[in-house]
Write a protein that binds this DNA or RNA. Structure first.
Length: 135
DNA sequence: AACTTGACTAATC
DNA sequence: CGATTAGCCAAGT
C-alpha cells in the first residue's frame, strides 16, 4: 500500500493537541495558577489559548483535572460573574491558598504580571513597568 | 463550504 | 473596572 499521498504528519491530530493541553493542566501543582495562553504555550500551541478552553470543556475527566488552576489573562476568571462555575473555581482556588477577589485572583501586591504564575516555574513574562507606579 | 459559537486576549470607550 | 470591539483559531451546524 503505497499510494498514500502526502498527508504526512505535518499537522498533528487535534486529539493530540487536546491531549497535550490536558497533560499540561494535569501537571499543575496545588496552588499553581496559570493562564490559558500559558497553558497553550507550554503545550506547544502558542496563540491557541482558546483551544485550551476547548480542551478543558471537552475533557472526559474534568473531575480529576485541575481545571480551576487555569484562569484568564490577568488572573481573571473567565466564567460569567455569579455563575456556578466561577464560584466553584474561586472556591477551589481559595482552598489551595490562592486569594480570589471577585473574579480575579489576588496577585503579588499589584504586580503587573499578565502571565501571572503563582508558583509556576519560570514564567513571569512580566509586563512593562507602568508609568507612575504608585502604591 | 459558509456561518456561528466559544472555558481567549488585547485595546478602547 | 465593566462593557465593547476586534483579532484569533478551531469545532460544530
Amino acid at each position: 500500500m503505497h499510494n498514500c499521498q502526502m498527508t504526512s504528519d505535518q499537522s498533528p491530530d487535534p486529539d493530540r493537541q487536546l491531549a497535550a493541553i490536558r497533560a499540561v493542566v494535569s501537571a499543575l501543582r496545588v496552588g499553581e495558577v496559570v493562564t490559558y495562553g500559558l497553558v497553550a504555550d507550554r503545550a506547544g500551541l502558542p496563540g491557541r489559548a482558546r483551544l485550551v478552553g476547548l480542551a478543558l470543556r471537552t475533557a472526559p475527566d474534568s473531575t480529576t483535572l485541575p481545571w480551576h488552576r487555569v484562569v484568564g489573562a490577568g488572573g481573571r476568571i473567565v466564567f460569567p460573574a455569579g455563575s456556578e462555575s466561577a464560584e466553584q473555581q474561586a472556591r477551589l482556588l481559595r482552598a489551595e491558598g490562592i486569594d480570589v477577589k471577585g473574579r480575579r485572583v489576588a496577585m503579588p501586591q499589584g504586580a503587573d504580571l499578565d502571565a501571572l504564575l503563582w508558583g509556576a516555574p519560570g514564567a513571569v513574562k512580566m509586563r512593562r513597568s507602568q508609568k507612575g507606579d504608585r502604591r
